[in-house]
């Protein structure tokens, strides 16, 4: 059992859904990332996804790309990210201690770091799992094995272009939860989500015992209201990253605008 497994069984017992923000580690500094994570936990987020900045993110839209660029310009390194997370865990603020963290990381980085070393260090610093958006199920066995042995979740993705049988196969090899990508495309806020999304998630949910969280494009309370009933949790990335993008100029203002957005989304989820 990982912290993520625990979280979903608790939420299920309470008939609740997970709210999971995505933020970029080190945008614009790791100290600020610590403040954001602390605030997210205080606001009642169930889990947080920490994006590891990457130089060539092909699944990301302009908002997240720009945040990665800011972080890399500030020389954010993997070792610094792990250290920051470990320090936050050690400081032991109550809500934060209970909020599981997953890293969103390119396989280019995991591979270069070394598969075992990546998981060992991520886990030691307090991550419960990883989402590796460019690691397909056919290529995932070596890393999946490393994760399994260490009780570290490898969260895999299903997209609108994934055929049904393949979606089942991916659900089987994923752990922690399954990431259901709502749109065919890159990350970024959308005004509209595909009409058949609810049905497709429902179809898979009937056939898999793994919790399913929906992400990509979600930015508005209406989206949350529509998708909450068919899923186990929702992931919001670009809208939150954008709310923080003026942090270099004024941190507290950025934290406030982020808090406002997150509060409105969480209240949409709870009602």
């Amino acid at each position: 059992m990982t912290a993520i497994d625990d979280l979903f069984s608790t939420l299920k017992a309470q008939n609740k859904k997970a709210f999971m923000p995505f933020i970029t580690a080190g945008d614009p500094s790791l100290a600020f990332t610590g403040k954001v994570l602390t605030r997210l936990a205080e606001l009642g987020c169930s889990m947080a996804e920490l994006g590891i900045p990457y130089s060539d993110p092909i699944a990301d839209g302009p908002v997240i790309q720009a945040s990665y660029t800011r972080a890399l310009q500030n020389k954010i390194k993997l070792s610094g990210i792990f250290q920051t997370v470990a320090d936050l865990r050690a400081a032991g603020s109550q809500p934060l201690a209970k909020m599981p963290l997953v890293s969103m990381v390119s396989y280019a980085i995991v591979h270069r770091h070394g598969l075992e070393k990546y998981v060992d260090e991520a886990k030691a610093s307090g991550f419960a799992g990883a989402i590796v958006p460019d690691l397909l199920v056919e290529e995932s066995e070596p890393f999946s094995k490393v994760c399994r042995v260490r009780e570290f979740n490898l969260i895999q993705l299903v997209t609108p272009t994934t055929p049904p049988e393949r979606a089942l196969r991916i659900a089987e090899s994923s752990s922690g939860f399954l990431y259901f990508v709502s749109v065919t495309g890159i990350t970024g806020e959308r005004t509209q989500l595909p009409v058949d999304l609810v049905d497709r998630v429902g179809w898979l949910r009937d056939r898999s015992s793994l919790p399913i969280c929906i992400g990509f494009g979600i930015s508005k309370p209406e989206h949350v209201k529509l998708l909450a009933p068919v899923s186990d949790g929702l992931i919001v990335g670009s809208a939150i990253v954008r709310s923080l993008d003026q942090a270099a100029a004024d941190e507290s203002k950025a934290l406030d605008s982020m808090s406002q957005l997150v509060t409105s989304l969480i209240s949409a989820l709870e009602n």
Binding site: A59, A108, P133, D134, E138, E139, T162, V181
Partner: peptide
């Protein structure tokens, strides 16, 4: 079949592109 030239090659892309 997996697109491997010895140990090189393969496919490291988002799931969205797999079907195409």
């Amino acid at each position: 079949q997996q697109g491997r030239f010895g140990m090189f090659g393969g496919r490291f892309v988002p799931e969205t592109l797999t079907r195409a």
